[in-house]
Design a protein around this nucleic acid. Structure first.
Lengths: 112, 112
DNA sequence: CAACTATATACGCATATACTCATATAGTCT
DNA sequence: AGACTATATGAGTATATGCGTATATAGTTG
């Protein structure tokens, strides 16, 4: 499979992509994702790890789960979340690399 | 250089990443990016290609440029924009693939 | 069943941002 | 300089969304 040509996305597809980016556009949600890189955790642990309120963490977890970025597993009273989309680490890596490159280039641009 | 361990991002880095995702979270901006996959275009062409108003397109172009996603080149009265961040096509590809996978899996989940 | 715990949700407020309309700026041509 | 064109920006409005507080739901244990 070679490199795909840029077939233009439909309007519906564009909105899906935009919605996905929007879900990833909140620092608290990124903190949650980050906290789940090492494996699944329950809500209480995530509240502790992120320093957010229980209500807020719960809401963000719902948002992430609705976007199929996280997956849920209930075990008695507790609910365990984990990263359910394998592209997420890759995505974060691409963005982080791009940001680092920009900061480096920007630093270089300042001198000369 | 092997696969990076998940070193936790600093709070500042998280906000940068979130901001970058936020810039990509608008359908009109995605349309603009898409319209620039084939090469640079001036504002008038982008207005025509996206169907937006001149003012709105101009503002979104500014947002994308401020985020270092697009680059500007002035030529007389016209301003030409192009994709200035090589990670953008990659990013879009990762997201599109993930969405397609989800839709496929979802379709399969509905039966049985 | 009653008390308790873990998680989810309803409501209200504050803020951010996308859009439109009107106008300003920058560059060109006569 | 003055008219004209391409792009950018300011102001105002409508909508969306994140957060805190309080409460509801689901599950457990005595």
């Amino acid at each position: 499979m070679a490199k795909k040509p840029h077939r233009p996305l439909s309007e519906a597809a564009l909105q899906l992509v935009a919605a996905r980016f929007a879900v990833l556009a909140e620092p608290m949600r990124l903190r949650l994702i980050q906290a789940l890189f090492d494996g699944e955790r329950n809500v209480g642990e995530l509240v502790a790890a992120t320093g957010g309120t229980q209500a807020n963490v719960s809401r963000h977890l719902q948002t992430l789960t609705a976007a199929h970025i996280l997956a849920r597993r209930k075990a008695g009273l507790q609910v365990f979340y984990r990263i359910g989309d394998p592209s997420i680490p890759q995505l974060c890596d691409v963005v982080c690399t791009a940001i680092e490159r920009q900061l480096t280039k920007q630093a270089g641009t300042l001198q000369t």
